[in-house]
């Protein structure tokens, strides 16, 4: 379970994030939506301890993320290319992660096997560094890397952005299947309302750093979001 308490992020005078209380139970698929500058990425970064919170705390499985590191072993994340080693080829990158997570070659093969369709023969076995991949392929590498090592919690920032339509559908199917099979908690931010409403059990709407709506009713989600974003 992820708990956020009285979280605040302030740059000088400007408050960019102000979340009083947020609890995400295990195996929930949590969607985060909001316009540009609403604080989605900042919230994720603070939850992953990449940015210091001005006040308040985040805990994953009852561990304060800024004080311990054990939660990192069961948390996967892909926010942006800073989280990749762009000077490696995708194969080398996955090998490196394999060693970091202590997986066997067979484990890795099983894991990559699941993404054969998503990769579409454009990623593995190619002599190309990650930095030279197209944006869509870069994203695929990051997402697949975030899902390595049987994580219990997965953070994805705009996972559908830059992906082609068939890849978007494949990714969506995969997330749903994974949630079903291994009770993984997903935290997904997205601008694509159709996709998030389809896969997420719950959607939180962020505006100027504040949670202004917490939608749990799947049937009403789309209508409410539509109403908000149409203005």
């Amino acid at each position: 379970m992820i708990q956020v308490k009285q979280l605040k992020k302030q740059y000088k005078q400007a408050v960019v994030l102000d979340v009083d209380q947020l609890e995400i139970p295990n195996s929930e698929c949590f969607g985060l939506v909001g316009n540009n500058g609403a604080g989605k990425t900042t919230l994720f970064r603070i939850m992953l301890d990449l940015v210091r919170a001005t006040s308040g705390s985040v805990s994953i499985d009852k561990q304060d993320v800024s004080k311990t590191e054990t939660w990192k072993a069961t948390t996967g994340a892909y926010l942006d290319e800073h989280m990749l080693l762009t000077y490696l080829t995708p194969d080398e990158y996955f090998q490196t992660l394999r060693k970091i997570y202590g997986m066997s070659e067979a484990d890795l093969d099983v894991h990559l096997e699941k993404f054969t369709e998503l990769f579409n023969d454009e990623i593995l076995g190619k002599k190309k560094y990650i930095r030279d991949l197209s944006k869509g392929n870069l994203k695929k590498v990051g997402i697949v890397a975030a899902l390595m090592g049987r994580p219990e919690v997965v953070f994805l920032d705009e996972p559908f952005e830059n992906l082609d339509p068939s890849s978007q559908i494949r990714l969506k199917k995969f997330i749903l299947a994974e949630k079903e099979a291994s009770q993984t908690t997903f935290l997904i931010s997205s601008h694509d309302l159709n996709h998030v409403t389809e896969i997420c059990d719950r959607i939180v709407l962020l505006e100027k750093g504040k949670i202004i709506n917490d939608l749990r009713d799947k049937s009403a989600m789309m209508a409410e979001l539509d109403a908000y974003f149409t203005g």
Binding site: L50, T70, K72, A73, T75, A77, E81, H82, L85, I100
Partner: peptide, 16 residues
């Protein structure tokens, strides 16, 4: 600098 988040996001990544 381009990949620092990668190490931050691993357990004991900085130490390693």
């Amino acid at each position: 600098s381009a990949n620092f988040d990668f190490f931050l996001n691993r357990k004991d990544g900085i130490e390693a």
